[in-house]
């Protein structure tokens, strides 16, 4: 995967689910900032920032692994989205930078 830089956003609405949007800024292949937003439910809510913090300063190649690892230990109750949707939305946003 070539080294990428830039800011991008993508949104996904799983059928019957909730909207999930990912906005990220990449600097030379590293996540400078990442924000997930949408009308989904995630309890406890503070875990959203914890996921974003876990992804910040990571190489883009590690996005999928970090997200799955986070949800496997985070003990969150979600409605309208699932861990794979966070991966997919982030990848969609990244793909726009290539």
């Amino acid at each position: 995967m070539p080294v990428v830089s830039g800011t991008s956003s993508a949104e996904l609405k799983p059928p019957g689910g909730k909207l999930l949007r990912c906005t990220l800024t990449i600097k030379e292949g590293v996540i400078a900032s990442i924000r997930f937003s949408g009308d989904f439910f995630l309890i406890p809510g503070e875990k959203m920032v914890a996921l974003e913090d876990a992804l910040t300063r990571m190489e883009v190649e590690k996005i999928e692994r970090v997200i799955h690892s986070f949800f496997s230990t985070a003990h969150v109750d979600m409605l309208g989205v699932a861990p794979e949707h966070f991966v997919e939305t982030a990848k969609m946003a990244l793909a726009k930078l290539h």
Binding site: R21, T23, S37, D39, F40, G45
Partner: peptide
């Protein structure tokens, strides 16, 4: 909602 991007 808590997770929504206000301007969107």
């Amino acid at each position: 909602g808590y997770f929504q991007a206000i301007r969107e």
